[in-house]
Simulated assay, not measured.
Amino acid sequence: MPEMNYNKKLRGWSLRDAAEAGQLLEVTCQFCRTTYRFIPRDLLKLTKDVSLDRLASRFRCVRCNRGDYMSLKVVQIWGSETGKLTVRRLIRVDMVKKPVWEDGVL
């Protein structure tokens, strides 16, 4: 039987809990049907420990650049899936310096 309220279950589960349980986060764009999988430890380097029901709204689809159709699902890795799933890994974080100008009187 399908779960009736999946978001209510995600409210009690945090990013750190998913990392300690060895789970993957599967983020799907419902608009263009693109799926991305992330390791929770990589996401903890970018953000603080938040509940998983609020995390889906922080993602944007790379393909269609929309953020309002993103849904998140927690996936448990099984032994037969090891080496077959495509997972996005965090390589580095680039900081961008952007100048802000203000007009003033000399």
Rank of each mutant, 00 (worst) to 15 (best):
M1N: 11
P2S: 14
P2G: 06
E3D: 12
E3G: 09
E3S: 10
M4D: 14
M4S: 12
M4P: 02
Y6E: 13
K9G: 10
K9I: 08
K9D: 10
K9M: 13
G12K: 12
W13D: 01
W13F: 15
W13K: 14
W13I: 15
S14K: 13
L15R: 03
L15I: 00
L15C: 03
D17E: 15
D17W: 02
A19G: 03
A19S: 14
E20A: 13
A21C: 05
Q23M: 12
Q23P: 07
Q23E: 15
L24T: 05
L25I: 07
L25T: 02
L25H: 07
V27L: 10
T28F: 05
T28R: 15
T28Y: 02
C29F: 02
Q30W: 01
Q30C: 08
C32Q: 07
R33H: 13
R33M: 10
T34L: 08
T34Q: 14
Y36K: 08
R37D: 02
R37Q: 09
F38W: 14
I39W: 00
I39P: 00
R41I: 04
R41T: 13
D42V: 01
D42Y: 04
K45I: 06
L46V: 06
L46P: 01
T47N: 07
V50D: 04
V50C: 11
S51A: 09
R54F: 01
L55Q: 05
L55G: 03
A56G: 07
F59G: 04
C61L: 04
V62H: 14
R63M: 07
D68W: 02
Y69H: 15
M70W: 05
S71W: 06
S71L: 02
L72V: 01
L72Q: 00
K73V: 11
V74T: 11
V75A: 10
Q76Y: 04
Q76I: 01
G79R: 13
S80P: 01
E81Y: 03
V87N: 03
R88Y: 13
R88K: 11
R88C: 13
R89W: 03
L90P: 04
I91G: 03
D94F: 05
D94G: 00
D94A: 11
D94I: 08
M95P: 01
V96N: 08
V96T: 11
K97Q: 12
K97G: 03
K98F: 05
W101G: 02
W101L: 15
E102W: 01
D103A: 10
G104C: 06
G104R: 12
G104K: 09
L106Q: 09
